[in-house]
């Protein structure tokens, strides 16, 4: 076989030659993050399982003692692995978080469907009635609307945070982004949407935190 044949047919590229300092730092950061997440997973679920399993096994008279014992053992094992060998928890964590993701999607779908039919639809009906035919979602059978231009004036100064705080350092908190969103919608006159938004944004913020937490499957179940 000629020299380099395997290298040419490999699907891996030799990006090691060109990896920038930024990407090398990103790789390191991702690796550290992953180990931290695996350790967190091992410790959080490990404590939960060992305490709950241990309590039920030692203190509660139960028909399924074997189950509590297994739970406690699994918990202790997770504690050990999370501390000593976090990399070994890669697949258990993926499985666990996959479950959380699935649960999250179900919960989200149910809640969004309720919001859509319970709030958006009646508000939409009201809004269309209020606007008459003046909203931009035109639909016609034979006679198009009588408009002669689609151009609309652009506001000369868009409400904008850039102009005033060019020098600002430090990223903003979720709470301030939350408030900014509500204020923005209020300033644009979308008062009808404010209650919907309040609910959706809270849901979003909770999910934003929950999606990376090892406790997600429990939180979703409680929710």
């Amino acid at each position: 076989m000629p020299n380099g044949f395997n290298a040419l047919n490999s699907t891996e590229t030799n990006q090691v030659f060109t990896r920038s300092r930024y990407l090398r730092r990103l790789d390191e950061r991702r690796e550290t993050d992953e180990i931290r997440q695996l350790t967190n997973f091992g410790l959080t679920i490990g404590w939960l399982f060992s305490l709950l399993g241990g309590f039920c096994w030692f203190c509660v008279i139960s028909q399924i003692d074997w189950f509590w014992r297994m739970m406690m053992t699994a918990g202790l094992l997770l504690l050990f692995l999370g501390t000593a060998l976090p990399q070994s928890l890669y697949w258990p964590r993926r499985l666990w978080m996959g479950l959380a993701h699935l649960q999250g999607r179900v919960v989200m779908t149910v809640l969004l469907t309720v919001v859509y039919f319970g709030l958006m639809s009646p508000l939409g009906w009201w809004e269309r009635r209020r606007r008459g035919g003046s909203h931009p979602f035109h639909s016609w059978d034979t006679q198009p609307p009588t408009l002669t231009t689609g151009w609309e004036a652009l506001p000369q100064s868009v409400p904008d945070a850039i102009t005033s705080d060019v020098q600002q350092k430090g990223s903003r908190s979720l709470v301030s982004l939350f408030a900014e969103t509500l204020i923005f919608f209020a300033e644009r006159g979308h008062y009808l949407l404010l209650p919907v938004l309040l609910f959706l944004l809270m849901l979003g913020m909770i999910l934003f935190f929950v999606q990376t937490s090892a406790l997600a499957p429990f939180i979703y179940t409680i929710g």
Partner: peptide
Amino acid sequence: LMMTYLLTAPQGLRSFL
């Protein structure tokens, strides 16, 4: 997005979800 869903409800559930 929100105004589109508002003005077209209840036809946009799939897109909304």
